[in-house]
Simulated scan of single mutants.
Amino acid sequence: MTGLTRVLRYLHDFAAATHAVWLREVLRMLRDSGQIVGAFSRPVLWVMIFGIGLTPYFRTGLRETTFMVPFTYIQFILPAVVVLNLMYPAIQSAVSLIWDREFGFSREVFASPTPRSAVFFGKLLGGGTIAMAQGLLVLLLLPAANVPVSYASLLGALVPMATVALAFTAIGLFLASRMSSFQGFGVFANTLILPAFFLASSIFPLDPSLSMEQALQSFPAWLVFLVHANPVTYAIDELRWVMLGYRQFDPITARTVLSAFVLIPVIMAYHAFRR
């Protein structure tokens, strides 16, 4: 057998193992009716309760909100709801790693010739696929929110959505690789998701017409710092640009942060998983 043949055989076996793990993760989600119900109910509740309930307070014509006049509040938060519907299933998909370890499936897989890296990428892509499917469901609400829908905007939304899906799946795998209980994982997951979402300019805007000094006069310094340091901020901002043609932050900074946001967790999770 030549060297090229061995390489091709290895790549074929690697892809087959990755696909098998990916398919297992996706089928697990399809058989879980709770995940499917949550995927539908979560965005509808957020849009109805926050979007409709808070719209009057963002249409007052006050100085603090005049830059929001071209958009309704529902339109403003809809990209954030897309990201929220990506974050939850992405990070929760890593629970399967604890489940597999608890019931012996991991021992059987790792005792086989299957490369551990193939298992990792299968779980990473499986969690990312599940998250993308649930995030795409929110896009069905675009016509109801009176957001223009085009093929270009839908395709443009896929990049920041995939970034969030893969990043939070990797974060979940990193946590699950270091934890042995479902309860501890759930606490860490919720402790991470909620601050990351609320500190991402998701439900309240930072006026882009203000300089940093002016923003610090309007908001506490710690809040401005955390919003700018939060990678989720830039994912939501990219989605707002694609859907509404509106952004709050520099696009070069946003894309640089998002690139690091997906690479660093994947590398960390890969090393934790292999150990």
Rank of each mutant, 00 (worst) to 15 (best):
T2W: 02
T5F: 00
V7L: 13
D13H: 08
F14I: 12
A15M: 10
A15R: 12
R31Y: 06
D32Q: 06
A39R: 14
P43Y: 05
G51S: 10
I52T: 14
L54R: 09
F58R: 09
F58A: 02
T60A: 06
M68G: 04
P79F: 08
N85S: 08
V95L: 14
L97G: 01
I98H: 04
D100P: 05
F103M: 00
F105G: 00
S117C: 06
V119E: 02
G122V: 06
G128Q: 03
A144R: 11
V147R: 07
S150A: 00
L154Q: 04
A170D: 02
I171E: 01
F174Y: 09
L175N: 01
M179W: 14
S181H: 12
F182Y: 15
Q183F: 15
Q183M: 15
G186L: 13
T191Y: 09
T191G: 12
L194G: 06
F197Q: 10
L199P: 10
S202L: 10
S211Y: 11
V224Y: 07
F225W: 12
F225D: 13
Y234V: 02
I236E: 01
Y246G: 04
Q248W: 13
F249G: 02
D250K: 15
D250G: 08
D250C: 11
T253C: 06
L258N: 07
L263K: 02
